[in-house]
Amino acid sequence: MELANQLLRRLPVWAVYLLGALPAPWLFYLGLTGGLGVEPVRALEHEYGELALQLLILTLAISPLRRLLGLNLMKFRRAVGLLCFFYVLCHLLVWLLLDVQIPGQILTDIAKRPYITIGMGAFVLMLPLALTSNNLSVRKLGRTWSRLHRLTYGAAVFGAVHFVMLAKGFQIEPLIYLGLVLCLLALRLAGSRWLRQLSGALVSGRT
């Protein structure tokens, strides 16, 4: 783990931004040239959405990874969070411009279709997070900043539920994502109070 941390310390943040953003134009290129199959719009929408969800789970995993395994990715957390927002934006734009296409229908869809309402909810929760992901905001907002950024938890639950709700029939994959999100949130809850008390009790019991 020390070695991993040492190597990670040498990896510059800009490289994470670059590597993380590359799949977006690459997937778009694949969609243009037939690499995403015969129905590229849905495929692209799905790829961007799934990447966003994976990055969202990674941002949630960063602090438990450090706490439980000693793996330190804290330096990259902002990059991962912003990349996640970037893919949510790509996902939303593909839906708006290439999928639905009809502006009037977009508003109806948001109002009438619960899985879209919830997806939009996740996006709205992420907006203030993306806007305050800079050093100035962190300094200005102080304690409010960390409280504000707990919106991530809401966005993660909404995002995963959005995926579960759009599946046809009983499908496993979206449920795995939702399960991961809920586990990570549970770890936080546990890590904050209950688990500390419990481990405290165990330690004092042993001595």
Binding site: F28, G31, L32, V38, E39, P40, V41, L44, L98, Q101, I102, Q105, T108, D109, K112, R113, P114, Y115, M165, L166
Partner: peptide, 22 residues
Amino acid sequence: VSHPRWSQATERRIGGGLFARR
């Protein structure tokens, strides 16, 4: 008659690529 989760008013013909109109 909409599907509860999406409209059935329009469709995408397979094979039109990324920029096909519905």
